[in-house]
Design a binder for these strands. Structure first.
Lengths: 217, 217
DNA sequence: GAATCGCTAGAACGAACGCTCTACTCAGAG
DNA sequence: CTCTGAGTAGAGCGTTCGTTCTAGCGATTC
């Protein structure tokens, strides 16, 4: 009775831009809304971000927001989490693939995160942690998107560690610690307004990984 | 002009209970308000927690809240952060002092955190991280309290590492990584609804610390 | 007994919240 | 031309927000 079929356009992958427009010309309304939501959630969290503020920043109207996301704020936030998921995954892959040496690959990740953080004046930390903490155990739709994001990142790191010569079981466990440490270090860096926590954590993670690869290989 | 002198009772340490009552009988209004705020901020974050909800949970009236915290929500939140700071510090000290072995001390910390988390049905993570993320760079009073809390915890861990035979510089750096990793692992555990991320991170931190103590001592 | 003071009590304010609703624009199909 | 349907536009709903305000309670002090 609640029109379960039309929860949103989801992954229709339709252009959404005015038909016939160039791919990267102007993002199209739906895309603009998702991007604005993602950035606002990252900076102000779920409860701190209003739908009207989103529509303002996205240069879309309230009507458009509810047109594309009939599920309201929760559905919109879940989609924004998926956007942030992919964003972080791209950075993670870029860093991890930057070197054949595992330690260097990890420290590159932390260096990239530190640079982004500084460039945003310590505002843009993890794109989903704030929303995740606020909604854990209370907004299932968002929780599901968050869980998937973590699993996604975990899989990326696990695969890289395996490729670096670490065994299946160890790789899975270490990947979890790597992501946790990055997450925590990013929070610490934001609070301290300093790149140091991220860079130091990178160094220690590299050392930890080395203790699994040295004497094996 | 804004009556800067009377921002609150602060650390008056007066009983606040009805005069003459036993120390632990019933916490007294101010204390009840701070405790309720701390728990609510931990679970729902800053923006997700309303002052009326706080007064309801604390079994105090709105008048009482503004009597004790004329600075409003911000001052109240800052005080609650300081409460959470001390709460976490107590657990940290208990865990770190539980063994003469550094690695065991750390894994005890993660085990304690995991137990608390499970006992609260994965609700009560770090008491300040949610609020910290929401207000970073936007609410100076709260930011200051958060910065102080991190510095406090950092000092506790640093001292323990030094006592465990790690040099000054290494101890300071490692303490930062330890706290970051705990913070991140707690978030991961909340999301996964599992003790595993915390326990695994404990194991890895112990191994990392061992790599600094072995071959030195 | 009157005055004082720390604290309780809750009605009321304007602003903002998430969301619903109707009206409108406009390109393409028949 | 009309018709259709995706998308735009924003007024307005009821609710809740943080805060202010006045009134009153009850114990202590003169």
């Amino acid at each position: 009775m609640t029109t379960p079929e039309r929860t949103s356009a989801k992954s229709d992958a339709k252009p959404t831009t005015t038909p016939g427009a160039k791919a990267e010309a102007k993002p199209g309304t739906r895309e603009r809304i998702v991007r604005a939501t993602s950035r606002l959630l990252q900076r102000q969290g779920y409860e701190g971000t209003g739908i009207k503020q989103i529509s303002r920043e996205a240069e879309a109207t309230l009507g458009s927001v509810y047109h594309f996301f009939p599920g309201g704020k929760q559905e919109l936030a879940a989609e924004a989490i998926r956007h942030g998921d992919e964003e972080f995954a791209v950075l993670l892959r870029a860093g991890l693939d930057s070197s054949t040496d595992l330690g260097e690959a990890i420290t590159t990740c932390t260096r990239m995160l530190a640079e982004e953080l500084r460039a945003s004046d310590w505002q843009d930390g993890c794109p989903i942690s704030s929303t995740a903490l606020e909604t854990v155990g209370r907004v299932p739709v968002i929780e599901a998107a968050v869980t998937e994001a973590f699993a996604h990142w975990h899989a990326i790191v696990t695969e890289r560690l395996r490729a670096g010569g670490i065994g299946e079981e160890d790789a899975r466990e270490l990947a979890g610690t790597v992501i946790s440490a990055l997450e925590g270090a990013e929070l610490a860096a934001q609070i301290a307004r300093s790149e140091q926590p991220l860079l130091v954590t990178g160094k220690h993670l590299a050392r930890l990984l080395a203790s699994y690869t040295d004497g094996r290989a």
